[in-house]
Simulated assay, not measured.
Amino acid sequence: MPASGENKVIDIILNRRSVREFNDRPISKEEINKILNAGRWAPSGLNNQPWRFIVIRDPETILKLSECTHYSIIIEGAPLLIAAFLDTENSYNRTKDVQAIGASIQNMLLACCDLGLGAVWLGEILKQNEKVNSILHCPPELDLMAVLAIGEPAPGKRTSSRKPLSELVFNEKYGQKWEE
């Protein structure tokens, strides 16, 4: 994976990894605002910005949320959680809005990487969305999309692999292989 320094955004994309273990350094308000601003600048259809975020730092709330997922140890170990929601009252097309929230989440993950922070996108917690919404006192129009666990990464090597483009991309028509 190249880290040329010539293409900072591409380098961040290629070097970002899901981080599931954190040290206990608190995340500053300035860092949180940078992450949230990256999220709100994602593209959305008609610029409707259908996302809403809840910033969670209280250890008691984090503990309650950890009980909503099989990945409780990840949530318990994170000094910061950001819950991402679809505001259904400001939605104009659910598919496009969910895609926009995905872009928003990716922007926040990339911002974390750029800030030297680690993060992981947790989706399994969606199975307990009503419990999460209750813990966070969410109004019914907020539909949980994901929870991000964020913190300074604990030491350790993180690796990942990807399928080659030739397995994922086709030239002009399905079945015509793309050559890298």
Rank of each mutant, 00 (worst) to 15 (best):
N7I: 06
V9T: 15
I10P: 03
D11E: 05
I12Y: 03
I13A: 03
L14A: 09
R16M: 03
R16W: 01
V19W: 06
R20D: 07
N23E: 12
K29E: 15
E30W: 03
E31R: 13
N33T: 10
I35N: 05
A38I: 02
G39A: 12
G39Y: 08
G39L: 00
G39S: 07
R40S: 04
W41D: 01
W41G: 00
P43I: 07
S44H: 07
N47T: 08
N47M: 11
N48M: 04
N48S: 10
N48G: 01
N48T: 13
Q49K: 13
P50S: 10
R52K: 13
I56Q: 00
I56K: 08
D58T: 01
D58S: 14
E60T: 12
T61L: 13
T61R: 13
L63G: 05
L65C: 01
C68F: 10
T69A: 10
I74K: 06
T88Q: 12
E89M: 10
N90C: 00
R94W: 08
R94G: 00
T95C: 03
D97F: 08
V98P: 07
A103H: 10
S104F: 03
I105Y: 04
I105G: 02
M108D: 07
A111W: 05
C112F: 05
C112S: 13
L115H: 03
G118S: 07
G123I: 07
G123A: 10
N129W: 09
E130N: 14
E130Q: 15
S134P: 01
I135G: 02
I135W: 00
L136S: 09
L136R: 10
L136I: 11
C138L: 12
P140S: 14
E141Q: 15
E141F: 15
L142C: 08
D143V: 07
L144P: 09
L148Y: 08
I150K: 11
I150D: 02
